[in-house]
């Protein structure tokens, strides 16, 4: 009915947060890493704001395509009140219930996947810098 509104709302917050962080962040850190496991090379570590943009992209992209699905099913209209369920109290209650269940679950899953990606990225960054310490520099 309007479950996509919840991830879209989070997307607005994370987009603003990414913009603010981007301005406040210090210059990116340069480290020695190994991309191929054979030689070490200097590279710039991507900042957190860039990683936050991964979440933005997941949330905006998903919300946009889900919004299209709702248009397809006639649940979203280009005229007021935009959400057909908002037209009468019974449907509105059902819509709010769907936002509170499916909408929040969607947002939680996307955020959980992003957090898992951050964890994996952290491990990969650590492994790349650790292995670079044992290798000769790139020619």
């Amino acid at each position: 009915m309007a479950c996509f509104v919840v991830p879209a709302a989070e997307a607005v917050i994370t987009t603003v947060a990414a913009k603010v962080l981007e301005k406040k962040e210090a210059a990116p850190e340069t480290v020695k890493v190994s991309f191929d496991g054979v030689s070490a090379t200097e590279a710039v570590k991507i900042p957190f704001s860039r990683k936050l943009k991964w979440l933005n992209s997941l949330l905006w992209g998903g919300s946009a395509l889900l919004a299209f699905e709702h248009v397809w099913h006639g649940e979203v209209t280009p005229w007021f009140p935009f959400l057909t369920a908002a037209g009468n109290p019974a449907d509105a209650a059902e819509m709010l219930n769907e936002m509170a269940t499916a909408g929040i679950s969607m947002t939680a899953l996307v955020t959980a996947v992003w957090l898992a990606m951050l964890g994996v990225a952290k491990i990969m960054e650590k492994n790349a810098t650790m292995s670079a310490k044992k290798l000769p520099p790139a020619k």
Binding site: L58, G61, G62
Partner: peptide, 21 residues
């Protein structure tokens, strides 16, 4: 191509939740 990846994965995760419900 990253734009497409994020968009489709984001939608897939959301529709997965829909499917579970």
């Amino acid at each position: 191509l990253g734009i497409l990846c994020w968009m489709y994965w984001g939608a897939s995760l959301m529709w997965f939740v829909d499917a579970v419900f």
